[in-house]
Each structure stands twice: as structure tokens, then as C-alpha cells.
Amino acid sequence: MTEEMIIAGFGGQGVLSMGKILAYSGIMQDQEVSWMPSYGPEMRGGTANVTVIISDERISSPILANFDTAIILNQQSMDKFEKSVKPGGVLIYDPNGIIKHPTRTDISIYTIEGAKLASKMGNPKIFNMIVFGAFLEVKPIVKLENVIKGLKKSLPERHHKLIPLNKDAITMGMQNVVKASI
């Protein structure tokens, strides 16, 4: 199994940390991982993206032009990465703020109302974990228990009390991802 993906959105949405949690989850199940951020002069509100690869085999290039999955969280990223999904691949996006919706018919497209659900759950910070849950529902490449293990490992001890909230957010995402009809 090799999953090559891009997560792209605004700085501050938790794009890079979602990728990091995914990479940690891969390590927890003994897989090879790579996490390559775009590290331009990014800031809160600027664009941010990260290429994450999880594989059973040694990973060659951390730099990719085409992806099995794209998680897209703003319009700029949609413009840039819709065309980079491999035929037969998956595109997951939050329709909040998207003006031009994806139109490709050779890929599977899903929506997750991450921003709305996060504010409903009373904590906009868990937005990225809701989206992450949507991804795991569509592509269960890492087990939830390994995600939790990964969180325990990557978060400092003082933040471990937030793990149940993160778990709830993932579940919320899993339950609310919708296949889009093009």
C-alpha cells in the first residue's frame, strides 16, 4: 500500500498538523512516512500545503506532482490541486468558501462541512480533525487506535486532555462526509 496525498488550505487551518498526525499514525503501524511542507513565507491567512506519503515500502520521492488523495480547504488550493489528483483518485473538500466547485468526473469527490461542524462543536480549532475524520472514513489507511497513539506521542503531556475531543472530532468527520454528485 502506498498513499500519496496533498493537504492544502490556509495557514492556521491546521493543514501541517493534520499531515503530521497522519504521519505519526503511519509510524504507529510500522509504515514508512514522509511529510514535506510548502514552507514559503507562509503565515496565518496565507496558503499552506503539505505532501504526505504513507507506504509499506521505502519512499522514493517526497516531491510529487500527482496525488491519490487531495484534501482541499480553500479556493486557491482547489484551483491548484484539483487537476493534480490521479484518475480514479479522491478529492475531499470543505465547501465553505469554495466558489468554483470541482468538476472532474474521473475521480471520487467528497464534501465535509468541517468549518460548520467545528463551530457547532464549539471549538473552531478542531476543524482539521473533523476533516481528517472524513478522510479516514473514505480511506481507512490508518486505524483510529493508531491515530490516538500517534496523538499521544506527538502532543506534549499537558495537551493529552484534549485527545478525547480530537477523537470526537474525527468521529464527527467520519459520520458527516458526503459523496458529491457532479
Binding site: 504521519a23 512516512v33 514522509s34 511529510w35 514535506m36 511542507p37 514552507y39 517526497p62
Partner: peptide, 10 residues
């Protein structure tokens, strides 16, 4: 280079 410096791996 910036790729190897910035990327995370095992």
C-alpha cells in the same frame, strides 16, 4: 537542501 532540511521522516 531545503527539501531534506524541512521534510519529516522516520
Amino acid at each position: 537542501d531545503g527539501v531534506i532540511g524541512q521534510m519529516m521522516e522516520k
